[in-house]
Nucleic acid binder design. Sequence first.
RNA 1: CGGGCUGUCGUAUACCGGUAGUACGCCUGUUUUGGGUACAGGUAGACUGGGUUCAAUUCCCAGCAGCCCGACCA
Length: 411
Amino acid sequence: MRQSQLFTKIERNAPKDETTANAQLLSRAGFASKLMAGTYSYLPLGLRVLRKIENVVREEMDALNAEEILMPMLHPKSIWTATGGWDKIDVLFKLKSRTEKEYALGQSEEEVVVPLVMKYVMTYRDLPRAVYQIHWKFRDELRSKSGLLRGIEFLMKDMYSFHENQEDFDQFYARAKESYLKIYKRLGLVAKATEASGGSFTEKISYEFMVLTDAGEDDILYCDACDYCVNIEVAKCEEGSVCPKCGEKGLAKARASEVGNVFDLGQKYGKDFDLSFVNRDGKKQHAIVGCYGVGISRLMGVIVEKYNDENGILWPEAVAPFHVHLLALGGVDGEEMYKTLQTAGVEVLYDDRDASAGEKFAEADLIGIPWRIVVSSKTGDGMVEIKRRGEKETKVVTIQEAIKIVKRENV
RNA sequence: CGGGCUGUCGUAUACCGGUAGUACGCCUGUUUUGGGUACAGGUAGACUGGGUUCAAUUCCCAGCAGCCCGACCA
């Protein structure tokens, strides 16, 4: 993409009243723009990042044999009264039509997905099933904050699995947890599977996936010697207590942001909607349902919180809006290099604007694309300069070599 | 929802109870060309409503909006 085509522009000053790195940098660099507290527009660069995160998640969900669907965001009141959520869930957005008919905006979609899937599940032979969607969620939080980390409208992947018995559920649940850890790793994050409360509808514990960051809103206790981690809300131990799992070390306390969770919902939803299937004994039975969320837009914010320096963002390869930021300096034409990179299958943002070198460098750092390739009178014929965002050293190499370097990591 | 802070050109800011200034951006021209090049000229602003006052962007009240702390976040 040619940078001259971007309708967004870089802002030199951070917006006042924004204190978190993700809110400041995403706004300055033109990735996202706030409409009101808790809702954002995703701009061309930001949307590319969002789609990359989505696709990583999508690939892992598909690997679990989950099927992708898309469900409505606008729900009838009736399904929410059926499960008790209409009165119990205080973050549920409720609205009224002209004719006083009442609706809810989806804050999670068990109420839609359980009747939907169970419509097709007649017997145990139709199980297990897993479906997911990547869609907007609405939660009437009292206080939106921290840029993309807590919005009242946000993009979430929500998967739901259906099982004939606890054993089958447990197996899938374990696979889903593994799949989650893989997702975060691919995104350049270290997430801890953290014991947490199961919410108001279940006594069981759930797992939250936590990424350590001061911009987060949860406090967790974790062990350095093993993978034990617990949300302080449900912890039966405290900071410094010996790890209850491995007994090796004292627990450390840290601030974290929840980027995903998995719940065992048991048979609640099957019962609420009185939906059942015929089991192996020929008897009616409610399916065991699991629910698995990943906060896609929040992840974008968390990644920026983890990957930034005084000059801007440093996107991990897997989610960077482009692989290469091509800068043409001093009136030199970068057109040929641009086309060569594109032909080689490299995603490239080409700064073809008539701007000074310093300005282009500063803006490239802010945008944070992993590789910077410069063509100028200094690089010479057939040669380009290549540099990695975050590193100081530059290398002058041939065009073909530059492509090789970039593709080694990105393709 | 409780508490606090803040609303001034597009952005970031300054001053002030009496003609609103600066930087960046943007426009015109010159200049410059490897870390936001320099110069000249230009463009553009007091959240809304009420009150106090001869006079309010400034003081007071309310509303609206934003941020922060807390609570909340099935």
